[in-house]
Simulated assay, not measured.
Amino acid sequence: MFKDHAKIINAISVAGEISGRKKLQKIVYIAKKLSFPFQEKYQFHFYGPYSEELTLRIEELCNMGYLNEVREKRAGYYQYCYSITEAGRDFLSMQEVDMPMLEECLLDMNEQNARFLELVSTVLFFDTLEKDEVIEKIFTLKSKQKYTLEEIDEAYVYIEQLQEKAKLS
């Protein structure tokens, strides 16, 4: 049970701080699609792949004092920032979490904005389809985001770059 909690704490620890619930969801999903051993189940939701399990796990970790959740007011909305606490570091030191290339991938993903990660995770969610079918899905399901063909191409290139980083393990 706590192995999955430790993986989430480790992810936030190596990222330093993750700003935004949506961004956190996308980072864990993308890492899972890169074959890092995250167990959370995802379904397609308003903002792309979403895991209720991950939401509950984060809430538990905050309640146990292993993660900090800070609510910051941004231009008309609130954003939640996550970081590891001292108790979280102690807990993590007692767990075996072996994901050597995760740090490099997570640091890279954490530098991206949530909108781009939403696109990347959507492309990965439909990775069994041909590219033109994925593009059609994006234009239909994500029409409000107004993604361009150039952005979709960037997402495919970015996925390849992450896959290369993940393979180095």
Rank of each mutant, 00 (worst) to 15 (best):
E130F: 10
L117N: 01
D108E: 09
V123A: 03
L61Y: 00
R89N: 12
A114C: 03
P100M: 00
K146V: 11
H45V: 08
S51Q: 04
T85F: 03
N68D: 08
F116N: 04
L124Y: 06
C105K: 05
D98G: 08
A114E: 07
M64Q: 14
K146C: 12
L119H: 03
I135N: 07
T55Q: 13
V120L: 14
M99W: 06
F91G: 04
Y82A: 00
I58E: 02
E59L: 13
V134R: 06
E53P: 07
I58C: 02
G48T: 11
I84G: 02
T122C: 10
L124T: 05
E103S: 05
T128R: 11
E53D: 15
L56Q: 13
L129M: 15
F44H: 11
T55K: 15
E40R: 00
V70W: 03
F116C: 10
F116T: 06
M64H: 06
L106G: 00
D90T: 10
M109T: 00
C81P: 00
L124R: 00
S143R: 15
Y66M: 06
G88Y: 01
Q95E: 15
R115V: 11
A75Y: 13
V123P: 08
E40K: 01
S51A: 07
K131W: 06
Y80K: 12
M101L: 02
R89E: 14
E60Q: 09
Y78A: 09
V97A: 10
A75Q: 14
K144R: 14
E111I: 06
E103T: 06
E96P: 02
L102H: 00
S143M: 10
L61M: 05
E118P: 10
Y80N: 07
G76K: 10
Q43C: 06
Y50L: 12
C105H: 03
E72A: 07
V97C: 08
L102G: 01
E40T: 07
T55R: 14
I135V: 15
E136K: 13
M64S: 11
D132S: 14
D90K: 13
A75C: 08
T140E: 13
E53G: 09
Y77R: 11
Y50C: 02
R71H: 12
G48Q: 11
R115G: 02
E111Y: 03
Y42E: 11
K146H: 14
V97M: 08
M99A: 07
V120Y: 07
M101A: 14
Q112M: 12
M64G: 05
N63H: 08
F125W: 14
D108F: 13
Y80H: 08
Y80E: 08
G65A: 05
T140R: 13
F139I: 06
M99R: 05
T140C: 09
R89M: 09
G65N: 04
Y66P: 03
E86A: 01
R115S: 08
V97R: 03
Y82I: 02
T140M: 11
N63C: 05
E72R: 12
Y42G: 10
L61E: 03
K146T: 12
S143F: 12
Y82V: 04
E104T: 05
T85A: 00
E69G: 07
E60G: 00
R71I: 15
E86L: 01
L106W: 04
Y78W: 12
I84Y: 04
L67Y: 02
G88D: 01
H45M: 11
V134D: 02
Y66G: 01
L102T: 06
I135R: 13
K142C: 11
F125D: 04
E133F: 09
N63W: 04
D90C: 09
H45A: 14
